[in-house]
Design a protein around this nucleic acid. Structure first.
Lengths: 136, 136
DNA sequence: CAAGGCGCTTCGTTTTTCCTAGTTAGCCTT
DNA sequence: AAGGCTAACTAGGAAAAACGAAGCGCCTTG
């Protein structure tokens, strides 16, 4: 699976197989590195907008303009680029209805939908730890 | 709670209270926005290195140099800045043992530790959807 | 016909992130 | 005593990411 641009290079948990480009760690149970799978997850989610985009798409398929409205603050060019990356990563699928008029929708794939429990856990954590209305 | 710099501005779920600076949505159950709490979570986790840093600290307290070694690819200044941000957000605590020699350690707070279930869910998702060894 | 929306792309500008060299203090070895 | 190394950062500039505005072709609406 391809990543676009450079992504954070992370070390893997002791004993796990190192993908290309990663330094292979000696098998050492006391090494305090980040879980390799978690690091993998953060290759996507550690990029600005991806988490919120995926979160938005859990509400169902959306067109480009609708996503632009619903993800406040994102620019057209970044939205376009992120959607391309998420497609290439297999998390989002783009489907085109030729119309007229042409209509495009973006939808979570099964892989993308499989993120929902984790995103729910993140949402629960934020609700419990950063109640709305207390920011200043 | 203070955020450093500007963070992605997101719209909130219909009916939820809008914090300062957010556009208030009309209460409209069909609006497909990202859950406000999830958006809040991604203010931290959508920044490069934060997720991996927090993931690394789930293994226990670490000093700066140890973190530098265990989070492969991060530079000193970014590590320093991210740790400061995570402290200010209440996710990490810094404690200093004056020595000599001076010794500093960073540790997850209760709020930071409360992220562990969500990070475990993310790790599970990545393991099941991106098996190691298949990257190219 | 004019105006607006959709679904984007392009490019110059701005903002954010990142890197590297450097600092001080202490420890260890020769 | 001197030199090398580590810890825990910081400063300033470089690089990358993100933004904003303009634009395109097509369609719908008035």
């Amino acid at each position: 699976m391809n990543y676009m641009g450079s992504e954070p290079s992370t070390s893997l948990k002791a004993g796990s197989v190192a993908p290309e480009g990663f330094n292979t760690l000696e098998c050492e149970e006391t090494t305090k590195t980040c879980d390799g799978a978690l690091a993998q997850a953060f290759k996507f989610l550690g990029k600005r907008w991806n988490g919120v985009l995926l979160g938005t798409l859990t509400n169902g398929p959306s067109g480009f303009a609708e996503l632009k409205r619903n993800v406040e603050g994102i620019s057209d060019s970044v939205l376009s680029e992120r959607l391309s990356e998420l497609q290439e990563a297999g998390l989002v699928v783009r489907s085109v209805q030729p119309g007229p008029p042409v209509s495009v929708s973006y939808e979570l794939t099964d892989t993308g939908k499989a993120l929902i429990p984790a995103m729910h856990a993140l949402s629960t954590w934020a609700s419990e730890n950063f109640p709305t209305g207390t920011q200043h």
